[in-house]
């Protein structure tokens, strides 16, 4: 890190001050991230701060916002029991679906990382569920599979775990699990990043390991996992963020029911913002979500030096 910071000064002798300026580390940095900075200031700052302002008001989206201070925030943690339940459910959802999704995606990516046309076809087929994402067909199918007298129901009947008709989708104790399974089933996006990450591992590492007589399992632990750790880290952060913001699956399959069993954070936020037109409250919920996810992300970032291996930092 430190060495690259000083590099421009000690590099080739620069004769023109413009050239010096343009190759200065600060200039280069801002030239490259400049687009993001401009975009952020133009497109994101205003909506972000409006929503922060709305969160301190009573706002129905039609009449002018009315200042109420921190009332929205106190309501969340005092009287609104549904909110608290929704928060709990969201945590359960994130802590189950994210690891499962990542493990599943990694296994499939490892299985199909190379091979001929047949494997390419498999890969595409395994990616398909993620392409049809939130379409009506998925919702319809999911309810049929897990519904009253559905296929899963019949399977459980056959092995004698459940007697008679039972709906996994419509029972409070199992509804969330069906949404988790749906999320895991659509593991395509982490799979894709894993594939890209696997491709980046130099083949010579494996060759060297083979010479040393390492078996497949050892190669996985000693080469694949460390080399893949930046991608795992990325997937973990990204999946966690999108897990907290999950909306479509729960919304199309269960509408948050039964009895709020699948009322995920954003599903509830949506109900509050639009169905009952409390944009102020919805915005406050969004800001609490940012803080929660922000803290979790910060924790993950602070642990990454223990397990994430970056080639660019040269550590081994």
């Amino acid at each position: 890190m430190a060495q690259s910071a000083v590099r421009p000064a000690q590099g080739k002798q620069q004769n023109f001050s413009f050239s010096k300026f343009i190759n200065n580390e600060n200039t280069v940095g801002y030239v490259f991230i400049g687009l993001f900075v401009i975009g952020f200031l133009v497109f994101t700052v205003y909506p972000l701060f409006s929503s922060l302002y709305y969160s301190l008001t009573k706002y129905d989206g039609l009449s002018a916002p009315e200042w109420i201070g921190l009332k929205n925030y106190t309501r969340m943690f005092t009287t609104d029991i549904r909110y608290q339940k929704s928060l709990l459910i969201t945590f359960i959802y994130v802590f189950t679906s994210v690891p499962l999704r990542l493990i599943f995606a990694l296994i499939v990516a490892m299985l199909f990382k190379n091979g001929g046309r047949v494997v390419a076809a498999y890969r595409t087929l395994f990616y398909l569920p993620s392409v049809i994402g939130g379409s009506v067909a998925v919702a319809v199918i999911w309810r049929q599979l897990w519904g009253y007298g559905g296929i899963i129901n019949k399977m459980f009947n056959a092995i004698g775990l459940i007697e008679g008709d039972f709906s996994f989708i419509a029972s409070e104790s199992t509804a969330l699990a069906t949404v988790v399974v749906l999320a895991v089933w659509q593991f395509g996006s982490p799979m894709l990043t894993f594939l890209a990450g696997l491709k980046d591992i130099p083949v010579s590492y494996y060759e060297a390991a083979e010479v040393d007589g390492a078996n497949g399992w050892q190669r996985f632990w000693k080469i694949t996992l460390p080399c893949l750790s930046p991608v795992i880290f990325f997937n973990l952060i990204n999946q966690m963020i999108s897990g907290f913001m999950a909306f479509t699956q729960a919304y199309i399959v269960t509408r948050g029911g039964p009895n709020d069993a699948t009322n995920l954070y954003v599903v509830y936020l949506f109900e509050k913002s639009f169905t009952s037109r409390q944009m102020g409250y919805g915005s406050a919920m969004a800001w609490v979500l940012i803080v929660i996810v922000g803290i979790m992300t910060a924790i993950l970032f602070n642990t990454q030096h223990k397990w994430v291996f970056y080639e660019s930092k040269g550590g081994k």
Binding site: A139, V140, R143, G147, Y148, D165, F166, S167, I169, A170, S171, V253, T254, R255, G257, P258
Partner: peptide, 12 residues
């Protein structure tokens, strides 16, 4: 209909 079926009806 039992509650589960009605729950499904309400989304279906």
């Amino acid at each position: 209909a039992p509650v589960a079926v009605r729950q499904e009806n309400s989304v279906n």
